[in-house]
């Protein structure tokens, strides 16, 4: 894959990242199948060039943007983030990307906008999982505007200093490190600014199990399993578990966003 040029970031964790192999062989990307190794097996057939992203809704400069135009003049950063899946496993990933707020500033968010909605590509001929109604395609995600503007929230176009592998959500995906992994939507083709809370795929699938916020929270369990601890991928057979951190360890940057909210209700 093509090398990217980037600068390091103070937001990166000091933790040792998982290997490239672990990060690219163990994926949930149901567009390519429900098995963890399905994305690696099937995603190579995805065409990521040309790629265009529709930006619409409550913005000043709506339109269909070519990916190259969205990225022109953008300074990429490496963000080594903890990544916590709702299934209670975790990794550390050296993403390369830029702040979503940069993009939102450029396209001009109108004052009435309160949320950002995202959609993944629908192309069943290249995404075999979409030939079955496993989920209500397209995959949809959303953030409140203040969450989207938070400096931790990035659009990633690569990892380990290279262009994003297809199975990890090429060519451009969201990363919201204090939320469960499924919020970090992959292969984005649409970004809409709205004044109402957008529908999100896992919430539509099972609202009791997956809330709109889905912040990493060791005290609010998934109805079918505990979220108190997690298994770091890449250890030995006997590495055991480590405690899950509130907001996945990013509380100092994001706890204020939820002041006054009851996170057992807004899960």
């Amino acid at each position: 894959a093509a090398k990217l040029s980037y600068v390091k970031s103070d937001y990166s964790t000091d933790l040792e990242p998982n290997t490239f192999e672990e990060i690219t062989r163990y994926n949930n990307f149901y567009e390519f199948g429900t098995g963890k190794d399905d994305p690696m097996a099937h995603a190579r057939q995805l065409t990521t060039d040309p790629w265009s992203v529709k930006i619409d809704g409550l913005v000043d400069r709506a339109g269909d943007y070519d990916l190259a135009d969205l990225l022109s003049g953008v300074a990429l950063e490496e963000r080594i983030y903890r990544f916590r899946c709702v299934e209670a496993w975790s990794m550390v990933v050296p993403w390369v990307g830029f702040q979503l707020s940069d993009l939102l500033d450029r396209i001009g968010v109108q004052p009435s906008a309160k949320y950002v909605a995202f959609e993944t590509l629908v192309r069943p001929e290249e995404m075999p999982g979409q030939q079955y109604p496993i989920l209500d395609w397209p995959y949809r995600e959303g953030l409140r505007l203040d969450e989207a503007m938070n400096p931790l929230t990035i659009l990633a176009t690569g990892l380990y200093g290279e262009e994003m592998p297809n199975q990890n959500g090429a060519p451009i995906r969201l990363i919201v490190p204090w939320k469960y992994g499924f919020k970090s939507i992959k292969s984005i083709v649409r970004i809409s600014l709205t004044d109402t809370q957008p529908q999100t795929t896992w919430n539509m699938q099972n609202a009791r199990e997956y809330g709109f916020y889905s912040n990493v929270n060791p005290e609010v369990d998934h109805p079918r399993w505990s979220q108190a601890s997690e298994r770091r991928i890449g250890g030995s057979l006997f590495s055991g578990r480590e405690p899950t951190l509130m907001f996945n360890g990013y509380g100092e940057y994001v706890a204020d966003l939820y002041a006054g909210q009851d996170l057992t209700k807004d899960y």
Binding site: D221, R224, W225, S226, A228, S229, R231, L237, F238, S239, G240, R241
Partner: peptide, 21 residues
């Protein structure tokens, strides 16, 4: 209990009671 839960017996016991599956 040993490899997946890492012998967090307390948490495992809670899961046995609380998680239907």
């Amino acid at each position: 209990i040993v490899l997946d839960m890492g012998l967090l017996v307390d948490q495992a016991l809670k899961d046995i009671v609380k998680r239907p599956y």
